[in-house]
């Protein structure tokens, strides 16, 4: 094993796949000469040259569409958004073209493309730069959505995403790029659509994904001191979702808390809540609790942003609530 940063995991995954398959290329704003806005493509221009590591103008709609068109004609593009907030100006190409092409053509044209970049908040960036669109993309048939929370998962899942023959949305975080973690020296690929139990426990199940899962770890540590044992499931893939792992855990703990950094209305947690109540109703000993951001655009002011975001105390409170210890 070796210890690398999250951004290095991303660069290693992309570089290994580009060495393996000539059809793969990387395109986006600042990905080449600048080495990536968050240095997630460091060294790649030097290794692969300007035909395969391509700086674009600030034209998300244009380069998303060019990516999709090239994927219909033999390429396997990786399209980087500096953040998924900016994917909104290119979303027509993702929803109407990447996700629908295979269906509309009766199965003739698949679109093997990865759209990747950071999601959700990253400090005091205000309303337009702090949004999480996992549930938007996961709502769309035709797409797959992956949100890893550590370097190991990121590398293995990004490699799987690049090899996948369907369009994949791959979401990272500005605040995770510096995170360190162990990855194997040798090559590995992780399966899409399989959740991972990050911490085993018996009293309460906490389901989460992405960088916010770290506050669940902190909460679980504190709760353990009080004798409450939390099982933490990292979804890793949002679409397709690994309902089996969630249900199995809930049937064991009989209590569920869902932690998601996103607006509360109709989000990923809502979907999990529906699935669990419909398939494990008799196993639940308490109503499911979900923890999300405030139902407002993200504020800038530090005090307000702290209030807006979920924190580990919210998780502790939620766990105690489903255990009737509040």
């Amino acid at each position: 094993m070796k210890t690398i940063q999250f951004r290095e995991a991303i660069a290693e995954a992309m570089s290994e796949e580009m060495r393996r398959d000539e059809a793969v290329y990387l395109m986006g704003e600042e990905v080449a000469e600048y080495n990536g806005a968050y240095k997630a493509s460091k060294g790649m221009l030097d290794e692969f040259g300007p035909d395969r590591v391509i700086d674009t103008p600030i034209s998300e709609l244009g380069f998303s569409g060019i990516g999709v068109g090239s994927a219909m004609n033999g390429n396997r593009p990786i399209v980087e958004f500096m953040t998924f907030n900016f994917s909104l100006v290119g979303i027509d190409q993702i929803i109407n073209n990447a996700a629908k092409m295979r269906q509309m053509s009766g199965g003739q044209f698949n679109v093997p493309i990865v759209f990747r970049g950071p999601t959700a908040s990253a400090g005091q960036l205000g309303a337009t730069h702090s949004q999480a669109f996992e549930s938007w993309y996961a709502n769309t048939p035709g797409l797959k959505v992956i949100v890893p929370s550590n370097p190991y998962d990121a590398k293995g899942l990004l490699k799987a995403a690049i090899r996948d023959d369907d369009p994949v949305i791959f979401m990272e975080s500005e605040q995770m790029y510096g995170d360190k973690g162990e990855v194997p020296e040798e090559e590995y690929v992780l399966p899409i659509g399989v959740a991972d139990i990050k911490r085993e426990g018996k009293d309460v199940t906490i389901v989460s994904f992405g960088k916010i899962i770290k506050i669940a770890y902190k909460a679980a540590e504190e709760l353990e001191k009080e004798g409450i044992s939390c099982e933490i499931i990292d979804l890793r893939t949002i679409r397709p979702m690994d309902h089996e792992t969630i249900l199995k855990s809930v049937k064991k703990t009989n209590r569920l808390v869902i932690l998601e950094e996103a607006w509360p209305f109709g989000n990923v947690a809502t979907e999990i809540t529906y699935q669990v109540q419909s398939q494990a109703f008799d196993y639940l000993d308490a109503p499911i609790v979900k923890i999300n951001t405030a139902d407002t655009p993200a504020p800038y002011s530090p005090v307000l942003l702290e209030e807006w975001l979920p924190n580990h105390n919210d998780v502790i409170k939620a766990v105690k609530k489903v255990m009737y210890k509040d």
């Binding site: 244009g62 998303s64 569409g65 999709v68 068109g69 090239s70 219909m72 004609n73 390429n75």
Partner: peptide, 11 residues
């Protein structure tokens, strides 16, 4: 329109 350019990109 971008799809057409993308087809040409691959060629």
């Amino acid at each position: 329109i971008p799809l057409g350019a993308g087809l040409a990109f691959a060629d």
